[in-house]
């Protein structure tokens, strides 16, 4: 546990929660977030970055006045302060798209937020090939989702009460690549006859993010709606009548796509924190291969996205 290192790609309100949980549990953090500070985090409920320093009033920062240029630099001292026993907190030397496979291979866990799908696929592959685990997680309004890849060789010891059973592999392993390619209308199981709303919404956002290199907003709601409808028509036409994919719902989703609500981050960040600890310790049955949360109903569940 004390040897494990976690790489955080983009520190959002959600990943700040995961980071807090894991750093307090004694797990070292390395940061990769070259986004400009404070502009990139102005609306983020990242409690580790003191609001007073974020220069809200004029809406834009003056680089000369800023002590830190990137989000990672601003986070570094607060992470060190959060658990001084862990020593200094590293910052990754390169930007996200230059993160090499070799660099990524040193981490037990990689946690990414607001990351384009293409980068996610590449980094997930590099991480799991080296025996690490990859988590892609975001919240949007009252919803949140996480897709995770524990690697094909992951084994764990199931728990019954306090008893640990013998090591066993995942019942079914599906790589992040396949998870993100799985047609939406296949994302069902016996408990979810239609695809879970949080997963539907997350996929829509990821698809849009990949095409447009940014997440949708109220301003781009029109484009988001059109692109999403045509993507659904192509890949999962049976869902065209699904209420979640109606114009009203998609416009509403665009509006909250980058809205992070602190308690939603807090709950999902806690659940993912537990899953990371399970992944590192190999104790307890892990979620495979998605964790979904609906902050309105307050339900969270693990879900297997399975193309078959």
């Amino acid at each position: 546990m004390s040897q494990a290192k976690v790489l955080y790609i983009h520190v959002t309100g959600l990943s700040a929660e995961i980071l807090k949980n894991l750093v307090l549990a004694g797990i070292r953090a390395v940061l990769c977030d070259p986004r400009p500070y404070p502009d990139a985090v102005v609306a983020s409920p990242n409690f580790l970055l003191p609001c007073a320093d974020r220069n809200f009033t004029d809406g834009q920062s003056n680089p000369k006045k800023q002590k830190y240029l990137t989000v990672a630099e601003a986070m570094q001292p607060v992470v060190e302060e959060l658990n001084p026993l862990l020593g200094s907190c590293e910052i990754s030397p390169t930007s996200v798209d230059e993160l090499s496979d070799k660099y990524v291979s040193q981490f037990s866990i990689v946690i990414a937020s607001q990351l384009p799908k293409t980068d996610a696929r590449r980094i997930a592959k590099a991480t799991t090939n080296a025996g690490g685990k990859f988590f892609l997680a975001d919240t949007f309004g009252m919803m949140g989702a996480c897709a995770l890849d524990l690697g094909s060789k992951h084994i764990y010891r199931p728990e019954i009460g306090k008893t640990l059973l013998d090591p066993t592999p995942l019942r079914r392993y599906i790589s992040l690549d396949e998870v993100l390619d799985c047609p939406l209308d296949h994302a069902t199981n016996r408990f979810h006859k239609t695809p879970p709303p949080a997963w539907v919404q997350y996929r829509c956002l990821l698809e849009y993010g990949d095409k447009n290199k940014s997440w949708p907003s109220e301003l781009s709601a029109e484009v988001f709606f059109e692109q999403t409808r045509s993507w659904i028509k192509e890949t999962a036409p049976s869902l065209l009548e699904n209420e979640l994919l109606s114009e009203t719902s998609l416009r509403a989703l665009a509006k909250v796509a980058t809205s992070e609500v602190a308690p939603v981050c807090s709950v999902l960040g806690g659940i993912i924190g537990n899953e990371v600890i399970k992944a590192i310790s190999g104790k307890g049955e892990p979620a495979n291969n998605a964790v979904l949360f609906d902050g309105t109903t307050c339900k969270a569940w693990g879900f297997l996205v399975d193309p078959l």
Partner: peptide, 17 residues
Amino acid sequence: IATTNAIAAGLQILQAF
């Protein structure tokens, strides 16, 4: 366990809403 506290507190706020 700190994570459980975080989850419980988040849920309390969502119920507060």
